[in-house]
Design a protein around this nucleic acid. Structure first.
Length: 326
DNA sequence: AACCAGGACACAA
DNA sequence: TTGTGTCATGGT
Protein backbone atom coordinates (compact mmCIF):
# COMPACT_ATOMS: atom_id res chain seq x y z
CA UNK A 1 0.00 0.00 0.00
CA UNK A 2 2.71 2.45 0.87
CA UNK A 3 5.34 0.69 -1.18
CA UNK A 4 5.84 3.06 -4.04
CA UNK A 5 9.37 2.82 -5.25
CA UNK A 6 10.92 6.22 -5.05
CA UNK A 7 14.08 6.89 -6.96
CA UNK A 8 16.26 7.75 -4.02
CA UNK A 9 19.97 7.51 -4.52
CA UNK A 10 20.52 3.78 -4.19
CA UNK A 11 20.20 1.64 -7.20
CA UNK A 12 17.89 2.95 -9.81
CA UNK A 13 19.17 4.42 -13.07
CA UNK A 14 20.35 7.61 -11.48
CA UNK A 15 23.64 7.49 -13.29
CA UNK A 16 22.11 7.13 -16.71
CA UNK A 17 21.70 10.88 -17.02
CA UNK A 18 18.59 10.98 -19.14
CA UNK A 19 19.17 14.63 -19.79
CA UNK A 20 16.25 16.12 -21.65
CA UNK A 21 12.97 14.31 -22.12
CA UNK A 22 12.52 12.63 -25.47
CA UNK A 23 9.22 14.19 -26.38
CA UNK A 24 9.21 17.65 -27.78
CA UNK A 25 6.63 20.02 -26.40
CA UNK A 26 3.22 19.37 -27.87
CA UNK A 27 3.83 15.81 -28.97
CA UNK A 28 2.68 14.12 -25.81
CA UNK A 29 -0.81 13.38 -24.54
CA UNK A 30 -2.32 14.50 -21.29
CA UNK A 31 -5.48 13.20 -19.74
CA UNK A 32 -7.63 14.41 -16.90
CA UNK A 33 -8.62 11.88 -14.29
CA UNK A 34 -10.80 11.92 -11.25
CA UNK A 35 -9.71 10.69 -7.85
CA UNK A 36 -12.33 10.10 -5.18
CA UNK A 37 -11.40 12.24 -2.19
CA UNK A 38 -14.14 12.94 0.34
CA UNK A 39 -13.38 15.46 3.10
CA UNK A 40 -10.29 16.59 1.23
CA UNK A 41 -9.27 20.23 0.96
CA UNK A 42 -6.54 20.28 -1.66
CA UNK A 43 -5.44 23.88 -1.23
CA UNK A 44 -5.20 23.66 2.54
CA UNK A 45 -3.29 20.40 2.31
CA UNK A 46 -0.80 21.59 -0.30
CA UNK A 47 -0.11 24.86 1.53
CA UNK A 48 0.19 23.47 5.05
CA UNK A 49 3.97 23.24 5.13
CA UNK A 50 4.32 19.53 4.38
CA UNK A 51 5.42 19.74 0.77
CA UNK A 52 7.29 22.62 -0.78
CA UNK A 53 7.02 22.09 -4.52
CA UNK A 54 3.38 22.84 -5.40
CA UNK A 55 2.65 26.02 -7.30
CA UNK A 56 -0.75 27.58 -7.69
CA UNK A 57 -1.59 28.71 -11.21
CA UNK A 58 -4.88 29.87 -12.72
CA UNK A 59 -5.23 26.34 -14.11
CA UNK A 60 -4.62 24.54 -10.81
CA UNK A 61 -1.88 23.21 -8.55
CA UNK A 62 1.19 22.15 -10.49
CA UNK A 63 3.93 19.95 -9.13
CA UNK A 64 6.11 16.90 -9.66
CA UNK A 65 5.46 13.56 -7.98
CA UNK A 66 7.95 10.74 -8.51
CA UNK A 67 9.44 12.47 -11.51
CA UNK A 68 6.09 13.09 -13.18
CA UNK A 69 4.59 16.52 -13.70
CA UNK A 70 0.97 16.81 -12.60
CA UNK A 71 -1.72 19.44 -12.27
CA UNK A 72 -4.34 19.04 -9.57
CA UNK A 73 -7.66 20.82 -9.11
CA UNK A 74 -10.31 20.53 -6.44
CA UNK A 75 -13.58 18.84 -7.37
CA UNK A 76 -16.72 17.99 -5.42
CA UNK A 77 -15.55 15.21 -3.13
CA UNK A 78 -12.91 14.50 -5.73
CA UNK A 79 -9.57 15.70 -6.96
CA UNK A 80 -9.00 16.14 -10.67
CA UNK A 81 -5.55 15.29 -11.92
CA UNK A 82 -4.00 16.10 -15.26
CA UNK A 83 -1.27 13.54 -15.93
CA UNK A 84 0.32 11.62 -18.71
CA UNK A 85 -1.72 8.57 -19.70
CA UNK A 86 1.06 6.42 -18.28
CA UNK A 87 0.26 3.37 -16.29
CA UNK A 88 1.31 4.19 -12.78
CA UNK A 89 0.61 7.87 -12.32
CA UNK A 90 -2.86 7.40 -10.90
CA UNK A 91 -1.88 4.84 -8.27
CA UNK A 92 1.13 6.96 -7.47
CA UNK A 93 -1.05 9.97 -6.90
CA UNK A 94 -3.58 8.21 -4.72
CA UNK A 95 -0.76 7.05 -2.50
CA UNK A 96 0.80 10.52 -2.44
CA UNK A 97 -2.47 12.22 -1.59
CA UNK A 98 -3.52 9.46 0.84
CA UNK A 99 -7.00 9.98 -0.51
CA UNK A 100 -8.18 6.45 0.25
CA UNK A 101 -7.59 6.83 3.96
CA UNK A 102 -10.64 6.46 6.18
CA UNK A 103 -10.39 9.96 7.53
CA UNK A 104 -13.42 9.87 9.78
CA UNK A 105 -12.03 6.84 11.57
CA UNK A 106 -8.84 8.76 12.24
CA UNK A 107 -10.71 11.79 13.51
CA UNK A 108 -12.43 9.53 16.01
CA UNK A 109 -9.10 8.59 17.59
CA UNK A 110 -8.39 12.18 18.61
CA UNK A 111 -8.88 13.23 22.21
CA UNK A 112 -12.06 15.28 22.60
CA UNK A 113 -10.45 18.39 23.94
CA UNK A 114 -11.69 21.84 23.04
CA UNK A 115 -8.56 23.27 21.34
CA UNK A 116 -8.24 20.35 18.96
CA UNK A 117 -11.96 20.40 18.16
CA UNK A 118 -11.67 24.03 17.22
CA UNK A 119 -8.63 23.45 15.04
CA UNK A 120 -10.48 20.63 13.30
CA UNK A 121 -13.45 22.85 12.62
CA UNK A 122 -11.33 25.61 11.16
CA UNK A 123 -9.16 23.39 8.97
CA UNK A 124 -11.58 20.67 7.94
CA UNK A 125 -10.22 18.86 4.93
CA UNK A 126 -6.58 19.24 5.85
CA UNK A 127 -4.86 15.92 5.18
CA UNK A 128 -1.42 14.39 5.56
CA UNK A 129 0.46 13.52 2.38
CA UNK A 130 2.77 10.58 1.83
CA UNK A 131 5.82 11.98 0.09
CA UNK A 132 8.87 10.21 -1.24
CA UNK A 133 11.23 9.61 1.66
CA UNK A 134 14.33 11.11 0.09
CA UNK A 135 12.66 14.29 -1.11
CA UNK A 136 10.95 14.66 2.23
CA UNK A 137 14.17 14.11 4.17
CA UNK A 138 16.22 16.47 2.05
CA UNK A 139 13.56 19.15 2.07
CA UNK A 140 13.24 19.15 5.82
CA UNK A 141 16.99 19.18 6.32
CA UNK A 142 16.78 22.48 4.44
CA UNK A 143 13.87 23.68 6.56
CA UNK A 144 15.55 24.45 9.86
CA UNK A 145 14.96 28.04 10.99
CA UNK A 146 13.61 28.98 7.60
CA UNK A 147 10.21 30.35 6.71
CA UNK A 148 8.13 28.12 4.48
CA UNK A 149 8.38 30.62 1.63
CA UNK A 150 12.16 30.44 1.86
CA UNK A 151 12.22 26.67 1.97
CA UNK A 152 10.21 26.68 -1.23
CA UNK A 153 12.71 28.98 -2.88
CA UNK A 154 15.72 26.92 -1.83
CA UNK A 155 14.13 23.66 -2.94
CA UNK A 156 13.13 25.21 -6.27
CA UNK A 157 16.70 26.30 -6.92
CA UNK A 158 18.03 22.91 -5.92
CA UNK A 159 15.73 21.15 -8.36
CA UNK A 160 16.35 23.57 -11.19
CA UNK A 161 20.12 23.21 -10.89
CA UNK A 162 20.54 19.55 -10.10
CA UNK A 163 17.27 17.86 -11.02
CA UNK A 164 16.35 16.54 -14.45
CA UNK A 165 13.81 18.33 -16.62
CA UNK A 166 10.50 16.50 -16.73
CA UNK A 167 7.89 16.41 -19.44
CA UNK A 168 5.32 19.16 -19.18
CA UNK A 169 2.38 20.15 -21.39
CA UNK A 170 2.97 22.74 -24.08
CA UNK A 171 2.97 26.27 -22.77
CA UNK A 172 3.71 25.28 -19.17
CA UNK A 173 6.82 26.49 -17.37
CA UNK A 174 9.66 23.96 -17.25
CA UNK A 175 9.68 21.64 -14.24
CA UNK A 176 12.36 19.47 -12.71
CA UNK A 177 12.61 16.27 -10.75
CA UNK A 178 13.93 16.34 -7.23
CA UNK A 179 17.64 15.50 -7.49
CA UNK A 180 18.50 12.04 -6.19
CA UNK A 181 20.85 11.44 -3.29
CA UNK A 182 23.32 10.01 -5.79
CA UNK A 183 23.24 13.23 -7.75
CA UNK A 184 23.65 15.49 -4.75
CA UNK A 185 26.44 13.31 -3.41
CA UNK A 186 28.45 14.38 -6.45
CA UNK A 187 27.76 18.08 -5.94
CA UNK A 188 30.23 20.23 -4.04
CA UNK A 189 29.15 21.80 -0.80
CA UNK A 190 29.83 25.23 -2.28
CA UNK A 191 27.49 24.57 -5.20
CA UNK A 192 24.77 23.51 -2.79
CA UNK A 193 25.36 26.62 -0.73
CA UNK A 194 24.82 28.67 -3.87
CA UNK A 195 21.16 27.66 -3.65
CA UNK A 196 20.89 29.81 -0.56
CA UNK A 197 20.80 27.08 2.04
CA UNK A 198 23.59 28.43 4.23
CA UNK A 199 24.91 26.15 6.96
CA UNK A 200 22.44 23.47 5.90
CA UNK A 201 24.61 22.71 2.86
CA UNK A 202 27.03 20.52 4.79
CA UNK A 203 24.12 18.63 6.38
CA UNK A 204 22.50 17.90 3.03
CA UNK A 205 25.81 17.00 1.43
CA UNK A 206 26.84 14.62 4.20
CA UNK A 207 23.44 12.97 4.32
CA UNK A 208 23.30 12.53 0.56
CA UNK A 209 26.71 10.87 0.61
CA UNK A 210 25.78 8.51 3.42
CA UNK A 211 22.76 7.38 1.46
CA UNK A 212 24.56 7.18 -1.88
CA UNK A 213 27.39 5.12 -0.42
CA UNK A 214 24.94 2.62 1.03
CA UNK A 215 25.94 3.41 4.61
CA UNK A 216 22.38 4.44 5.24
CA UNK A 217 19.38 2.63 3.79
CA UNK A 218 16.18 4.66 3.58
CA UNK A 219 14.17 1.51 2.93
CA UNK A 220 15.15 0.10 6.29
CA UNK A 221 13.44 2.99 8.05
CA UNK A 222 10.13 1.92 6.57
CA UNK A 223 10.27 -1.56 8.05
CA UNK A 224 11.46 -0.55 11.51
CA UNK A 225 9.41 0.22 14.61
CA UNK A 226 8.85 3.90 15.39
CA UNK A 227 11.51 4.26 18.06
CA UNK A 228 14.21 2.65 15.93
CA UNK A 229 13.13 4.44 12.79
CA UNK A 230 13.41 7.72 14.65
CA UNK A 231 16.86 6.84 15.96
CA UNK A 232 18.02 5.87 12.50
CA UNK A 233 16.97 9.16 10.98
CA UNK A 234 18.45 11.11 13.88
CA UNK A 235 21.81 9.52 13.19
CA UNK A 236 21.95 11.51 9.97
CA UNK A 237 23.73 14.88 10.05
CA UNK A 238 21.27 17.74 10.23
CA UNK A 239 18.44 15.55 11.46
CA UNK A 240 17.30 16.13 15.03
CA UNK A 241 14.06 15.20 16.80
CA UNK A 242 11.85 17.64 14.93
CA UNK A 243 13.01 16.88 11.40
CA UNK A 244 13.11 13.15 12.09
CA UNK A 245 9.45 13.23 13.08
CA UNK A 246 8.54 15.31 10.03
CA UNK A 247 10.08 12.69 7.78
CA UNK A 248 8.45 9.84 9.68
CA UNK A 249 5.07 11.56 9.44
CA UNK A 250 5.17 12.97 5.91
CA UNK A 251 7.46 10.49 4.17
CA UNK A 252 6.72 7.16 5.86
CA UNK A 253 3.85 5.41 7.54
CA UNK A 254 4.29 6.71 11.09
CA UNK A 255 1.15 8.70 11.92
CA UNK A 256 2.08 8.89 15.58
CA UNK A 257 5.25 10.91 14.95
CA UNK A 258 4.72 14.36 16.43
CA UNK A 259 7.11 17.06 15.18
CA UNK A 260 7.29 20.07 17.50
CA UNK A 261 8.50 23.26 15.87
CA UNK A 262 8.12 26.82 17.15
CA UNK A 263 4.49 26.99 16.03
CA UNK A 264 3.41 23.70 17.53
CA UNK A 265 5.30 24.53 20.68
CA UNK A 266 3.40 27.80 20.88
CA UNK A 267 0.12 26.01 20.24
CA UNK A 268 0.74 23.42 22.94
CA UNK A 269 1.90 26.02 25.40
CA UNK A 270 -1.00 28.39 24.78
CA UNK A 271 -3.76 25.85 24.40
CA UNK A 272 -2.85 23.21 26.96
CA UNK A 273 -0.58 24.88 29.51
CA UNK A 274 -1.73 28.44 29.64
CA UNK A 275 -0.74 28.80 33.27
CA UNK A 276 3.04 28.43 33.18
CA UNK A 277 5.88 27.79 30.71
CA UNK A 278 6.57 24.12 29.99
CA UNK A 279 9.90 22.85 28.68
CA UNK A 280 10.21 21.34 25.22
CA UNK A 281 11.01 17.78 26.38
CA UNK A 282 8.03 17.96 28.67
CA UNK A 283 5.76 19.07 25.84
CA UNK A 284 7.05 16.17 23.74
CA UNK A 285 6.18 13.66 26.44
CA UNK A 286 2.75 15.21 26.92
CA UNK A 287 1.99 15.10 23.19
CA UNK A 288 3.01 11.48 22.79
CA UNK A 289 0.70 10.43 25.58
CA UNK A 290 -2.19 12.75 24.85
CA UNK A 291 -2.87 12.74 21.12
CA UNK A 292 -3.02 9.02 20.42
CA UNK A 293 -1.96 6.76 17.54
CA UNK A 294 -2.58 9.49 14.92
CA UNK A 295 -1.07 12.27 16.96
CA UNK A 296 0.94 13.55 14.03
CA UNK A 297 -2.25 14.35 12.17
CA UNK A 298 -3.55 16.27 15.17
CA UNK A 299 -0.25 18.10 15.23
CA UNK A 300 -0.77 19.15 11.61
CA UNK A 301 -4.14 20.62 12.46
CA UNK A 302 -2.72 22.59 15.38
CA UNK A 303 0.18 23.78 13.24
CA UNK A 304 -1.91 24.96 10.36
CA UNK A 305 -4.62 26.46 12.51
CA UNK A 306 -2.26 28.57 14.57
CA UNK A 307 -0.23 29.54 11.55
CA UNK A 308 -3.23 30.82 9.62
CA UNK A 309 -4.60 32.74 12.57
CA UNK A 310 -4.57 36.50 12.19
CA UNK A 311 -1.43 37.65 14.02
CA UNK A 312 -2.33 39.32 17.27
CA UNK A 313 -5.59 37.47 17.68
CA UNK A 314 -4.04 34.82 19.86
CA UNK A 315 -3.09 35.86 23.35
CA UNK A 316 0.61 35.32 23.96
CA UNK A 317 1.66 34.15 20.54
CA UNK A 318 3.80 36.95 19.27
CA UNK A 319 6.66 37.31 21.72
CA UNK A 320 6.50 33.84 23.19
CA UNK A 321 10.04 33.13 22.10
CA UNK A 322 11.61 34.94 24.99
CA UNK A 323 10.99 33.34 28.32
CA UNK A 324 9.44 36.37 29.88
CA UNK A 325 7.60 35.55 33.05
CA UNK A 326 4.33 37.38 32.97
C1' DA B 1 16.05 48.15 10.39
C1' DA B 2 15.54 44.91 13.72
C1' DC B 3 13.32 40.54 14.28
C1' DC B 4 12.31 35.87 13.19
C1' DA B 5 11.93 31.54 10.64
C1' DG B 6 8.33 23.84 10.47
C1' DG B 7 16.40 23.39 14.31
C1' DA B 8 20.68 20.92 14.91
C1' DC B 9 24.85 20.74 17.29
C1' DA B 10 28.61 21.19 20.57
C1' DC B 11 29.06 22.13 25.12
C1' DA B 12 28.03 23.42 29.94
C1' DA B 13 25.73 22.50 34.30
C1' DT C 1 18.98 14.51 31.01
C1' DT C 2 18.04 19.72 30.25
C1' DG C 3 19.48 24.54 29.15
C1' DT C 4 22.47 28.04 26.23
C1' DG C 5 25.21 30.23 22.19
C1' DT C 6 26.24 29.54 17.34
C1' DC C 7 25.42 28.65 12.76
C1' DA C 8 23.60 31.51 7.25
C1' DT C 9 20.13 33.72 4.83
C1' DG C 10 16.36 36.44 3.45
C1' DG C 11 11.15 37.79 4.25
C1' DT C 12 8.30 40.73 6.72
Amino acid sequence: MQKDQNQDGRGVHSSAGQGTPRNEAGCEDWIQREIPAPLYDLKTTLTSGQAFRWNETPAGWEGVVAGQWMRLTQGEGTILALTQPGRRSLALLRCYLQSDMDWEAILRTFPPDQPLKRALQECLGLRVLRQEPWECLASFILSSTKQIIQIRQIVAKLCKRFGDPVIVPAGVDPAYSFPSAARLARVSEADLRACGMGFRAKYLSSTARLIDSGSFDLDRVAVSPLIQAREMLRSLPGVGPKIADCVLLFGYDFPQAFPIDVWVRRALQDLYFRAEPVSLPELARFSEAHFGPYGGYAQQYLFHWLRTQAPGKSSSSRQAGRTRTL
